[in-house]
């Protein structure tokens, strides 16, 4: 694998780690706020909750796991996991939601 060795041991700055931690705490409180507001959000409630979770996950992956500074190969490998998860979800969902009931006369 071609990779320059100059940034193999990238040190994530303390201030970046601290900001990430504070942002994650803030977003957790935001999740709870959205939960208490779920009467107003209605069907959008779960979507808001998972959007916030998605942002939190991105922060953890980029700065705590250091993927922002990692090699393209490692980022690709990790993204592959989510791709196959999406494939699993899509195919399973298609199967379940396109089934014809047994009582059908088709």
């Amino acid at each position: 694998m071609a990779q320059s060795n100059k940034d193999v041991h990238h040190v994530v700055e303390f201030s970046i780690l601290l900001k990430t931690g504070i942002a994650l705490f803030g977003l957790t409180f935001l999740t709870m706020f959205a939960f208490w507001m779920h009467h107003y959000l209605g069907a959008a409630g779960p979507i808001v909750a998972f959007l916030i979770a998605g942002v939190k996950a991105a922060l953890v992956m980029m700065f705590f796991m250091g993927l922002k500074y990692d090699s393209l190969m490692n980022r690709f490998i990790f993204a592959l996991g989510f791709f196959f998860l999406l494939l699993l979800f899509t195919l399973s969902a298609l199967d379940i939601w396109t089934r014809v009931p047994l009582t059908s006369t088709l």
């Binding site: 990779q3 990790f78 996991g81 196959f84 998860l85 979800f89 399973s92």
Partner: peptide, 24 residues
């Protein structure tokens, strides 16, 4: 170091898929 780390990332893919099945 780079090789070991790549191995860990491959392991992480299996983790995503294991929990992912439950999520789906």
């Amino acid at each position: 170091f780079v090789t070991s780390k790549q191995g860990v990332w491959l392991f992480m893919v299996t983790e995503i898929l294991m929990f992912g099945g439950l999520f789906v």
